[in-house]
Write a protein that binds this DNA or RNA. Structure first.
Length: 174
DNA sequence: TAAGTGATCTCT
DNA sequence: GAGATCACTTAA
C-alpha cells in the first residue's frame, strides 16, 4: 500500500464528509531534528459554516479566525484557555468558514495534549497541510468501516445553545 | 470540582 | 485600555 498525502481537493468538500473520511487517516509531523512521527487519527469534531453557533466563525471574520474563511487544506492553530494549542484543518471552499478540530490520536487523546506531545503551536497557523510545512495528513490505507466509529455531540460547546451544542459533529473510533 | 492561563474580542 | 470569554487539563 502506497501512502498518499491528503491535499487541498480532499478537504475542499462538505465538512462532515471530510470529517468522516479523515477518521483513521494519519497525522505526520517532522520535528525540528527531522524526526518523523506518525499517528492515526481517532477523534475529530467539525465546525461548519456561519450558522454553527459553536464555531469561531459564527460571529463573523476576525484576524484570528480569518484562515477558516480561506481555501481548504490549511492549518488553523489557536491558543485556548491561555494554555492549550488547538489543531484544526480548514475545509470547504474559500469564503465558507469551516474546519475540523483534531481531538485525538492513537495514544494521545485530548486536543491540548496532542499538540503538546507533537510540539504544535502558532508556527503552523495558516500553513498548508503539506510535507513542506513539516505537518501533514496521509492516507495509509486502513479505512474505518461504518461499524467502527460513532458520532456524538461536541465537547465543551454548551454555550452554543441546545440546537448546535447537540449536533452529532464529533466522530470517534470505537 | 475548581483554578490556572493569556490571547482575543467587545465594549468604552 | 479594561473586562469577559474561552472548541482544556490537571490535581484534588
Amino acid at each position: 500500500m502506497q501512502y498518499t498525502v491528503l491535499e487541498a481537493d480532499f478537504f475542499n468538500r462538505p465538512t462532515l464528509k471530510v470529517a468522516r473520511e479523515l477518521l483513521g487517516k494519519h497525522l505526520v509531523c517532522k520535528d525540528i531534528k527531522g524526526e518523523v512521527r506518525v499517528a492515526r487519527i481517532v477523534e475529530l469534531e467539525s465546525y461548519d459554516g456561519f450558522e454553527d453557533q459553536a464555531s469561531h466563525a459564527h460571529r463573523g471574520q476576525t484576524p484570528r479566525n480569518a484562515v477558516m474563511f480561506g481555501p481548504a487544506g490549511v492549518w488553523y492553530v489557536y491558543l485556548c484557555y491561555g494554555v492549550h494549542w488547538m489543531l484544526n484543518i480548514v475545509t470547504g471552499p474559500k469564503d465558507y468558514p469551516a474546519a475540523i478540530l483534531i481531538r485525538g490520536l492513537e495514544g494521545v487523546v485530548g486536543p491540548g495534549r496532542l499538540t503538546r506531545a507533537y510540539g504544535i503551536d502558532k508556527r503552523f497557523d495558516c500553513k498548508p497541510a503539506l510535507p513542506q510545512s513539516s505537518l501533514w495528513l496521509e492516507d495509509r490505507g486502513e479505512p474505518v468501516p461504518e461499524s467502527g466509529f460513532e458520532r456524538t455531540p461536541r465537547i465543551g460547546v454548551d454555550y452554543a445553545g441546545p440546537v448546535w451544542a447537540r449536533k452529532p459533529y464529533r466522530f470517534v473510533i470505537k
